[in-house]
Amino acid sequence: MTKSELIARLAERHPHLSQRDVERIVNTVFDEIGGALAAGGRVELRGFGSFSVRRRNARVGRNPRTGATVEVGEKFLPFFKTGKELRERLNMKDGED
């Protein structure tokens, strides 16, 4: 499912809303999560999962083709941990939901 499919399915579920409003809602949700992570924060959505940022220290790497050493600076990576309820739902038999 892509973002536009998600928007279409939500619009079907909420027929009183315009497709445009649903699109703004979906964009707002992901934009807010991204903004919180960019600010170094955490996002916790009980039952779904939590997003956090993990730091990767600076290291000396190598260009695998030339063997030349390169400095790789410190960087931050987004990380997602699946929530308990969603993890359990993934492992239910189909239709058991």
Binding site: L6, L45, F48
Partner: peptide
């Protein structure tokens, strides 16, 4: 609803790409 729609899709084994 946004979270539920994503969860339902994932529960069927289908990937979600945002």
């Amino acid at each position: 609803s946004v979270l539920e729609e994503i969860s339902e899709t994932l529960a069927t084994g289908e990937a979600v790409k945002i």
